[in-house]
Design a protein around this nucleic acid. Sequence first.
DNA 1: GAGTTTGAAACT
DNA 2: CAGTTTCAAACTC
Length: 726
Amino acid sequence: MDTPDRTRIVTPLSKYEDSPVFNYINSLSPIKPVKSLHIAQTFNTLSFSSPPSVFTSPHVSSQRDSRVIRRHFFSGSLKLETSSDNGLRVSTSEGVLDAVQVSDCSGNPLESFDGECLIREDDDPTNENLELAIELPRTLKYECGSPDSKVGSSQDSKTDPTVVVSDTPVTCDQFGQEVSIERHLSFQSGVDLHQICQIEQTKEDGTGCDWEALISETSDLLIFNSSNNAEASTIEDQNKLDRESSACNSLSVPQENTDHMPITQLHVPVDPCGQHQVDDYAAQSTGVEETETDHTPHILLSAFQNKEHVNFPSEVMDDKVGSRVPFDCKQRGIRRRCLVFETVGGRKKKLGDDSNSSSSASSQCDGKVSSNDKQLDPIRPCTSSSPCMIPGIGLHLNALAATTKDPRVVKHDTLASGKELISMPTSLSSLNSLSFEQKALSRRRLEHDGETEACKRCNCKKSKCLKLYCECFAAGVYCVEPCSCQDCFNKPVHEDTVLATRKQIESRNPLAFAPKVIRSSDTVPEIGEETPGPAMHKRGCNCKKSNCLKKYCECYQGGVGCSINCRCEGCKNAYGRKDGSTPEGEETKASEKNGLLSSLQTKDLRKDQDQCPDPDLSLTFSFQICRTSVQHPFSSFIKPVRSCPPSQPKFEKHFQISPDDETPEILRGNFSPISGIKTASPNRKRVSPPHSEFTSSPGRRNTRKLVLQSIPSFPSLNQHETGDFH
DNA sequence: GAGTTTGAAACT
DNA sequence: CAGTTTCAAACTC
């Protein structure tokens, strides 16, 4: 996609240079023209680079690259680990693609390009080339689909060989993870590949290092890389990198410094290119653009090191201790991971505590913590980010949907990354695709969702995990080990089936995979908090016997009060009755039904106004939303211990808000900003609202959406965000 | 862990 | 759209 543009640009340029006018100008100018700046990186096209735009942020592009890398990496890791399912999931919130690749990608795609063997492990002789060819298009699709990609230029990938280099150092050949990384590099450019090869050689030559530690770390780092493009971009744009690093250090580092420092040091020495290595880390962890890293290696280095420390510790702890995981920095990383995919999905599925989710979640939810395997598992928020998404995709689902997945944001992710996990590139609806891919990839935003999703697993026996009965499928994530399903088709191996089924379901209900709980503000209750902010179940519940006091009730399960949309009987929803806390509310329900939309709108407005008297509701909403997305991650950041609270909204996997047929007007039209903002991969990655669907409504204001999107999704200080917003 | 309850999803 | 069936999670024992 970008490629064509590029060629166009270049060509005209040459023409102009040759033109008499140009020559004349040159003669007049003391400055001598330099030709062919664009020269060589043939792979750039592959790398998705787009003509550099004034506004493009290098970060974004880098992220894209990272995404690609991740996929490969995952695939490689998966092969090694043999738990293809888990690995796939982990890798892709964005997408099924990843999963597929995993199964297929044992080979060396790089070879096809360069003729050089970047990949050491040749165990898989299978059609690597073919896969590679397939993958490229897919990746392109994802990128196109992901909002993130739009935001940033893809050029970075080309420009930064350094990034590539940096990645390689981190990886360890022994486990095959390296291979995947290298693959990523290969995509970037031939030059990069060469560098990589050199690096690998140096590695081989030398250095003994704690490979196990490195490997485990690497997996996380890679995952980390998968972070959302959007987040990364935002971070860089705001120069939050430093902040993050500092925050991470302050929070988690102290505890684990001693342990981790050595590890980090190991990496540095091993890598022939110290700087690059650092850059890579930074890029991976933060999604910082390559260009940035190049220019500011020192800064990034410091910041990055800090991050590394954080990450490593957590993982180390996981491996050694088992369950203990520092959530903060790691969580972030997880989150990003989801986001990246999302745009994955993949999400997958949710990240906030992603960090924890991957490690801690697995430990807590699954009860088992296998260090390496689990880490790779991230696709799912739980195991990593489960339905953290993804979803987005990462979500295969995400990919399809296509929303989020994001790329695997999810889709996971789903999501297409950005996907979500799911690398599923194509989503049925743009919305879905984004959410899923990102989600999948992302999807798994986890601030809120992350936790629950992280715990997600199914026990399907007859649905083959291809119906919404299946929580995993519904969440846009592949089933993983913890699942007890039978005849499960919700696996990367059956990507086609999953996607087809998803499409079918979406054809019936385009929002079938959208979050069921819509939140209009950031008042989402913290864990343990009983009163969630303005939020409602998209469709409402239909409880008859549970009084909406049990998790049978989707409203209750989602941590929201029942609304007018509910048809429940004897509602005693602890989060607030639909009528507004008056038992008689039900009576009004019928009457209100006719004016449901107006009522809802009024209701929401009231709520929001209470919180934010701002006359410009839409604006207020957006702001709140932004805060929500940001704050929660941050809060989770602060909270060391994560659990899978029942109160956690089970549904906010991919998007917080997804306008739906059933969705009240509030969420639509005038409130478009909210939807736009809230639309996010399960991982919390901000996903650009499904334009196709959202834009369809006349009342929508795209402008505001854009503004909101510009707000950094990455957790940051409220003040800071506020300032940005205003 | 098996069985029951429950309500969403799917089907008609 | 309403009624019924299917399904799997939630719950109970």
